[in-house]
């Protein structure tokens, strides 16, 4: 990789970041409005999420020690770095480096930064929240990775952009949604877990642990956390779109798929309550994992869906 490639790659990555921020923040606002309608309300303006984030960034922040402050930076940096690697439509910042496992590992950096920072705030509720978040991560990562590994095995590549390209060969029929329907269901359930949507909202759970890891955040740090939240939603939903819905060639296709997935996840979340943490783990280790293994067996031994 020469200097030129690195420069263009970084530039593309930055453009993707800006796009991710603007797009996901707008969509979050729109989703709040849709959810509002679901709850018989009018809902906020579609750009409300921008106002919230910028307001938080103009407030003063209180620090609870350097671990706390550094952890937020580390989390935001890690997540933004991950977002730069995400293939959007046909654009990939670093071709050849968008391996599935890159996201898994880089994402963990962000999550660990957040865990570090939250625990650094010293509030026991934050500690409980982090513990729950990591436990939940163990819950959804296993079935998700089983499905992804099956997919990687079937398609013979681990690059997300190539996985997306493979699915674009023959229209809808070649999407993994059609080829691996069971895997897609598992993927969607795991997506709910990743997004922290109900019923897997356990680590936020305002009524139990007062918003868990975020309990001591305020002002600027909370603003950064919200930014981080938007970026991580972008990564998770884009990953799902790329892996199961065949990515996207055009802007319109990308937007339709992305909106469909995110709004569906948000609406499902509004009609469900929240599990307890042991129920979350028990749930993930019962149906999703069984289905994921079944899907993997189908791919490996029957060769269907390849």
């Amino acid at each position: 990789m020469n200097l030129n490639e690195i420069l263009t790659g970084t530039l593309t990555g930055l453009i993707i970041l800006v796009f991710a921020f603007v797009w996901q923040t707008t969509l979050s606002g729109v989703t709040r409005k849709i959810v509002g309608r679901f709850q018989k309300r009018y809902g906020p303006k579609f750009y409300q999420e921008f106002r919230d984030i910028f307001k938080l960034l103009t407030k003063t922040g209180v620090t609870h020690g350097w671990v706390y402050s550094f952890g937020v930076m580390m989390a935001l940096g890690g997540i933004m770095g991950t977002a730069m690697f995400m293939p959007v439509m046909r654009f990939t910042a670093f071709p050849g480096l968008d391996n599935v496992f890159i996201y898994v590992y880089l994402f963990a950096v962000g999550m660990l930064g957040m865990a570090m920072s939250a625990v650094g705030s010293g509030n026991p509720l934050a500690g409980i929240g982090v513990m729950r978040a990591l436990t939940q991560m163990v819950g959804y990562e296993v079935p998700f990775l089983v499905v992804v590994l099956a997919m990687v095995y079937g398609h013979g590549t681990a690059s997300v952009s190539e996985l997306a390209a493979v699915q674009q060969a023959a229209g809808i029929a070649s999407w993994n949604l059609v080829r691996m329907p069971i895997g897609t269901v598992v993927g969607f359930i795991c997506l709910l877990g990743m997004l922290g949507k109900k019923p897997f909202e356990t680590f936020i759970a305002p009524a139990e642990i007062a918003s868990g890891p975020m309990v001591e955040y305020g002002g600027k740090q909370l603003g950064m956390l919200m930014l981080l939240h938007e970026f991580s939603i972008f990564i998770e939903v884009s990953l799902f779109v790329n892996l199961f819905l065949g990515g996207a060639v055009t802007v319109v296709g990308f937007i339709i798929k992305y909106v469909g997935v995110f709004v569906l996840a948000s609406l499902v979340s509004q009609a469900l309550g929240r599990f307890k943490i042991d129920q979350v783990i028990r749930y993930f280790y019962r149906w999703p994992i069984a289905l994921a293994v079944a899907q993997a067996l189908i791919v490996v031994f029957l060769g269907w869906g390849v």
């Binding site: 018989k40 109900k198 009524a207 139990e208 509004q270 929240r274």
Partner: peptide, 16 residues
């Protein structure tokens, strides 16, 4: 009861 269980929709509907 929607509050502690996370089902806020029930809360909004009932309050309405």
């Amino acid at each position: 009861c929607g509050g502690p269980t996370g089902l806020y929709t029930a809360m909004y509907w009932a309050q309405a």
